[in-house]
């Protein structure tokens, strides 16, 4: 067992964990933060994306012990006092989800993009989301939602 201290969505946790415990399992099974799903076993789908010390990371590809001393933000830490972020609202308004399984990862990846590039074009949004798979939406509305959240014109035909 290894002792870790991790701040998750603003709360500091101390735990003894097995070194092999994946961060995503720590979040889901130990902390009960099941908003972060697991979609694959190959590090490909991005459903499990969280923010680790300010940068997006696939939490299925990080050990909990690697997050020792770090700050983690999950999709459950985005809303403040029940108030959605602009990005979350845009996903809602633009119908950027169907089953919703990819949505937590999409939100975290999009948030990462908007931090580095607050006014991306459609092409840049697509590139930034290349590590996140959606099996339902065809991506169109996800791209529109991110553009809308960034205050960009959404040219429906330009992104077709």
């Amino acid at each position: 067992m290894t002792h870790i201290t991790v701040k998750v969505d603003g709360t500091t946790y101390e735990d003894d964990v097995e070194p092999r415990l994946l961060l995503v399992h720590y979040l889901r099974d130990r902390l009960g933060l099941t908003g972060t799903p697991i979609g694959c076993d190959t590090s490909n789908c991005g459903a499990c994306t969280v923010e680790l010390d300010g940068a997006s990371a696939k939490s299925c590809s990080v050990l909990a012990v690697q997050a020792d001393g770090c700050e983690v933000t999950t999709v459950q830490g985005l809303a403040k006092d029940g108030e959605w972020t602009r990005l979350q609202r845009a996903f809602h308004e633009r119908h950027a989800l169907q089953c919703g399984y990819c949505t937590p990862g999409m939100l975290m990846a999009a948030r990462d993009l908007l931090r580095e590039n607050p006014h991306p074009g459609a092409e840049e949004v697509r590139h930034a989301l290349e590590g996140n798979l959606c099996r339902c939406t065809g991506y169109q509305n996800i791209v529109h939602a991110v553009l809308a959240a960034a205050g960009q014109q959404v040219a429906e035909e330009a992104t077709a």
Binding site: S56, A57, S61, A109, E130, G131, N132
Partner: peptide, 9 residues
């Protein structure tokens, strides 16, 4: 290489 999240780590 890969995608932004993988490139962060």
């Amino acid at each position: 290489v890969a995608d932004p999240a993988v490139r962060h780590r």
